[in-house]
Amino acid sequence: MAESLPDSLLSVRNIETYYGPIMAIRGVSLDVPKGRIVTVLGANGAGKTTILKTISGVMDPQKGSVTFEGAEIQGRDPDWVARRGIAHVPEGREVFPFLTVRENLLMGAFARSDRAAVAEDLDMVYGYFPILKERAEQQAGYLSGGQQQMLVIARALMARPRLMLLDEPSLGLSPILVKEIFGIVRRLNEEQGVTMLLVEQNANMALQTANYGYVLELGRIVMDDECGRLLESDDIKEFYLGVKKDAVRGKKRWRRKKTWR
């Protein structure tokens, strides 16, 4: 079993997670170094969301360990994990629909008692997402999809997390909004120093935003590398970025195999 890297904020070792009898995660290990953005790519049903749920405690792994800041956290309740400093931004914009935008944001800071700093952070997230300031007193259920996505990211930020788990922030958003949101994710990482674990289907966006990437297939990590190199990899290009090499004429497409199968 590999030891966790010294600068690793979060390290996941050989976790196996089940949905009833179905094994969704088949021995995944990954590391998230402090201050970096790490991404997990994979198709529908590869197990990306399950990894995040296992880290944040919504699901418990049958085997393996999740270590955050040197302490094992697997099998704990999700609210305990959240208070420990991990903010999970689930897919599908899980806002509190009948609370106002401002109340939603303040709920993000529920576990904090430093009121003055919370007020500062409220201004800080309004700076990143000015639209939320405009809509502060509106019920969150009436925001558009993109605004709700901004709200859940901002709300997670209000907890001053040391690690943020971002699940499919691009889901169902227009290309221009996707660009805007990933731009903000990047700025948050650079300016606020928030470490991020980003799960995405939009491989292109994810690889351009993150520093390091893992490729997940059917519950296993099949490839991992610096994002720059993943972007150059032929397999990634063909299967995740949809770039086909026309230059190799005559070569039958089906003869090219994914290297990991």
Binding site: V58, A82, R83, F96, P97, M107, A111, R155, A159
Partner: peptide
């Protein structure tokens, strides 16, 4: 309103 999200808020 949203139990899972509440868990995620701690």
């Amino acid at each position: 309103q949203n139990q899972l999200a509440a868990y995620y808020m701690g």
